[in-house]
Design a protein around this nucleic acid. Structure first.
Lengths: 224, 224
DNA sequence: CGCCCGCTTGATCGTCATCAAGGGCGGTGG
DNA sequence: CCACCGCCCTTGATGACGATCAAGCGGGCG
């Protein structure tokens, strides 16, 4: 598949014309990245954003002492790095490949031109950023107002969209734990408790939720 | 001052023409709100955003048990609520007046029209949202990677832009504490410790930083 | 002058991180 | 096919940070 064709898969671009796709394609470049590799470091300058053709990336921050906190896990068919493009600031996070991945980089100038030509595109861009902002507020909310069990239950509930009742964690348990602002140890312990309560079944990264309502109830009755 | 004149003070609108100002003014309305009053509740639908002509607002979330967490303090000349406008979701936070305030509400449809007419405006809007996103990431970073003393020092350093060395907290200590994800008690204790270390002087909401470098050093040497 | 609200200070507790060690699974090579 | 190795994950013991509960202080405003 060529670059222009790949671009048509990005939801953000769905209102564009063929000509515009060709323009974008000229400013896009394909790249492949191996598991564990760093795409950009916190502090690097930004001149475009990325689309995940296939694979998984994680955005995270880290303290001097080595502690890290995963902000987001970017999966196949998602984009990242849009926001930083519009302000002259370096990346506030670093990006690392969780598995071998294929990415598409789209240069800032191409986006700016597209915005000039297409109002709908600008609105989509705004909606995309707004959505991100919304998610982050929810994230802050979670971290501040809920304890570890509640955060985990909320997270599992979010993933619970399949019909089967089985969900698959998008990364290793350590990474998911960090996403929920927990240590791997705590994450493991809570999953064990939920298992013992017959609320879930854990098989590696696969988790079955038996009764989502009971699960939610449990997490609320925990305090006191 | 009439509405159109007030609009010209909003940085976001600086590229607009007089005609556009008139258009916007028709979709804007002035409102006055008393200290403590709620402007909108979490969950309310959004159909525009707000500009603080004079006063102070706070955006916060709250848990069932009554706990609250202040996300942002909006001061005179700042805007809020832009992001939610672009996605069909209710406010993820509630807004409350910290002091008696005058606001300008600008309806969504006026903004959408302005975006259609002015590319520069769309870009400014994008930059504004990006900036918000950036701040929030910084906020998450602070909460996760730094302890209470470090967060307070970082916050005080941010406010430290005046020449005098004296800074003024933008709200009551309780509200600032919540903004830093701390209880008032902890906030008070840390300020006391910093005072005892001769690093700052506290007089009500006025704080003098004696030596910002020593202050930073202290907050880093604390752990261990 | 007195009340109320916001701040301080103290004592105690709980949650989660940290430190440490052991177990399981998958991949690789003999 | 089996053995080995490394990486996660688990499980246990301990501790620290900050929250909570409780009481007293102080200053501003009516």
């Amino acid at each position: 598949m060529n670059t222009a064709q790949t671009l048509t898969k990005i939801p953000l671009f769905h209102t564009l014309t063929d000509t515009q796709y060709q323009q974008l394609a000229r400013h896009a470049r394909y790249l492949s990245i191996k598991r564990g590799e760093i795409l950009f470091q916190k502090g690097d300058p930004s001149d475009g954003f990325y689309y995940v053709i296939q694979g998984k990336m994680k955005l995270a921050i880290s303290a001097k002492n080595g502690n890290e906190r995963v902000i987001e896990i970017i999966q196949t068919d998602m984009t990242f790095g849009e926001a930083v493009m519009f302000i002259n600031k370096p990346y506030p996070v670093y990006a690392q490949a969780v598995v071998d991945s294929q990415l598409l980089f789209i240069a800032k100038q191409a986006i700016l031109r597209a915005i000039e030509q297409d109002t709908q595109f600008a609105l989509k861009m705004l909606a995309g950023l707004s959505y991100r902002l919304h998610s982050l507020v929810k994230d802050v909310e979670s971290s501040c107002l809920y304890d570890s069990t509640q955060r985990i239950v909320i997270y599992l509930s979010m993933l619970e969209m399949n019909e089967t009742g089985w969900i698959i964690l998008p990364a290793t348990k350590s990474v998911v734990a960090s996403l929920l602002n927990l240590t791997p140890e705590t994450f493991s312990r809570v999953l064990k408790i939920l298992s013992e309560q017959q609320l879930i079944t854990v098989k590696g990264r696969h988790i079955q939720i038996h009764d989502i309502e009971k699960l939610r109830q449990f997490s609320h009755t925990q305090p006191i």
